[in-house]
Amino acid sequence: MKLRGAHALLFATLVFGASAVAAGQRAVGPGSPIYGVKLPDGYRDWKLISVAQENGKNNDIRAILGNPAAVEAFRKGTRPFPDGAVIVRLAWRYQSSPRNDAVFPAPQSFVAGAPTNVQVSVKDSKRYAASGGWGYGQFEAGLPNPDPAIARACFTCHQKLGKLEGGADFVFTAWSE
């Protein structure tokens, strides 16, 4: 009987979590390892900062969104970013669109395919002092990736920007006009 109850609880948790993700709300659960970053409520309604494409292993297209504090800092060129700035990067597989290409004289249309992950960067200079003032999280299907190596890899990569002239406060993205 206890096992049946545990299965029912697990099923309810999965259904509720999937429903919350489908509705665009934050999934219930822990934050990312190391930093404790959570998927922000309402982030899909934030302003677009830029778009990007990664070739090679990632083979994805990305939309970079920001909360009001991040957007204001991007627009004004404020660096370092103020505490409370949050940047969210959504990624999808980069794929051709046979449907769209059927309209054009040659294959040329590419679109977002299956989602890969959502990455979140949160600026808090005191809480995340050891990582340049930023906390990181990667989410798949609305849930934080539990692998601490993934969270560590975020700062390892962003840290390389700090070695470049005008390090951009560890942020890859620039404001797109």
Rank of each mutant, 00 (worst) to 15 (best):
Met1Arg: 14
Lys2Asp: 09
Lys2Glu: 12
Arg4Trp: 07
Ala6Phe: 08
Ala6Trp: 12
Leu9Tyr: 00
Phe11Met: 10
Arg26Lys: 07
Ala27Gly: 11
Gly29Val: 00
Gly29Lys: 00
Ile34Lys: 11
Ile34Phe: 00
Tyr35Gln: 12
Gly36Pro: 01
Lys38Gln: 10
Pro40Asn: 02
Gly42Phe: 03
Arg44Gly: 10
Arg44Thr: 13
Asp45Asn: 15
Asp45Pro: 08
Asp45Ala: 13
Ile49Lys: 00
Ser50Leu: 04
Ala52Thr: 10
Gln53Asn: 13
Gln53Ala: 14
Gly56Tyr: 07
Gly56Leu: 09
Asn58Met: 13
Asp60Glu: 15
Arg62Asn: 09
Ile64Val: 09
Leu65Ile: 03
Gly66Asp: 08
Gly66Ser: 01
Asn67Gly: 02
Pro68Met: 08
Pro68Arg: 09
Ala69Gln: 13
Ala70Val: 05
Glu72Met: 04
Arg75Ile: 11
Arg75Pro: 05
Gly77Leu: 09
Gly77Ser: 09
Arg79Trp: 03
Arg79Lys: 14
Pro82Lys: 07
Asp83Glu: 08
Ala85His: 07
Val86Arg: 10
Val86Ala: 00
Val88Pro: 06
Val88Ser: 08
Arg89Gly: 13
Ala91Leu: 05
Ala91Cys: 09
Trp92Ser: 10
Arg93Trp: 12
Tyr94Gln: 14
Gln95Val: 15
Arg99Trp: 10
Asn100Val: 12
Pro107Glu: 08
Ser109Glu: 15
Val111Thr: 10
Ala112Ile: 01
Ala114Lys: 15
Pro115Gln: 11
Thr116Ala: 12
Thr116Gln: 14
Asn117Phe: 14
Gln119Phe: 13
Val120Met: 05
Lys123Phe: 02
Asp124Asn: 14
Ala130Thr: 07
Ala130Phe: 04
Ser131Asn: 02
Gly132Ser: 06
Trp134Val: 02
Gln138Val: 11
Ala141Cys: 12
Gly142Trp: 00
Leu143Asp: 03
Leu143Ala: 07
Leu143Pro: 01
Pro144Ser: 08
Asn145His: 12
Pro146Lys: 03
Pro148Gln: 08
Pro148Glu: 07
Ala149Asp: 15
Ala149Met: 12
Ile150Arg: 11
Ala151Glu: 11
Ala153Asn: 14
Cys154Trp: 04
Thr156Val: 14
Cys157Pro: 09
His158Phe: 03
Leu161Asp: 01
Gly162Asn: 05
Gly167Val: 04
Gly167Ala: 03
Asp169His: 00
Val171Met: 05
Val171Gly: 05
Ala174Pro: 12
Trp175Cys: 09
Glu177Pro: 15
Glu177Arg: 15
